[in-house]
Amino acid sequence: MYDTIKELVDTSIEQNTPISELMIQQEMKKNSATREEVWDQMSNNLDVMAAAVKRGVEGDGVFSKTGLTGGEAVLLKKYREKGHTLSGDTMVEAVQNAIATNEVNAAMGVVCATPTAGSTGTLPGVLFVIKNRLNLDHDQTVRFLFTAGAFGMVIANNAMIAGATGGCQAEVGSASAMAAAAAVEAAGGDAQQSSEALAMAMSNLLGLVCDPVAGLVELPCVKRNAIGAGNALIAADMALAGCTNKIPADEVVAAMKEVGQGLPKALRETGIGGLAGTPTGVQMKMSIFGQSVEVN
């Protein structure tokens, strides 16, 4: 297993092997699995992601039981069709994919957690838009997920990926960093550029709190994935342009851990502070769970 991002990057450069391939080899070795077994499982996960992105924009879209979220991926799709987006069609399509996926998740549909369900839209948000933009074939899209997974494992093992322990920066922050690093590899960048993209994406979201209204993975989680996807594309573009983060990726991950541990409990997935604690947030919690619910 790779202990640090530096180790992952150095190995990739020394062996002249992409990070996706290093991840496939590690997975085969660790689980005594064949390449085909490992590849097929990832390919199936890709299919689940593609299905959620599609399902979120069919008809009027999907809606959660509470009605707090749903239908907005469809709004974005219709908006794009008019051709007057401010940030360009690629960016708004990424946002649409991210929101579609998290709307399916909030509606208790089937998703692939990447790395968590709350942050499940960020990676597909980026993946399916660059698939079209860079004409990636099936193998390259599967490889994108191995690369993202390789970086995500280092983050998860050195810091955390749960909102309850590290805030949203640990969920959408990690997802965005993983997506940025994988997007760089897919676009032909080298391993060091992937590492820079990861560092920039995570640096940009440091401190992001986990404050779900009524404790539900809906507000603001669904739209936080839009920023996760957008931020990943921005960080990947910066890295491909040759920009660097100056603070190395491993130190950024350590900072994320430290910031996460310093967050008050009210901002770590307790549904108490932040947006959850606003008058409207509290009102929503009461109307969903009844007047008897304890509001802290």
């Binding site: 499982q41 998740n105 692939c112 790395p115 968590t116 369900a117 499940t120 998860a156 093992n157």
Partner: peptide
């Protein structure tokens, strides 16, 4: 390093019914 996450499919996965990977 904790090493709790041992497989790439702990990170890209699981395939699950929403809404939360930790709480569901």
């Amino acid at each position: 390093m904790s090493g709790n996450y041992k497989s790439v499919f702990d990170i890209i996965g699981p395939v699950m019914i929403g809404p939360s990977s930790s709480h569901t």
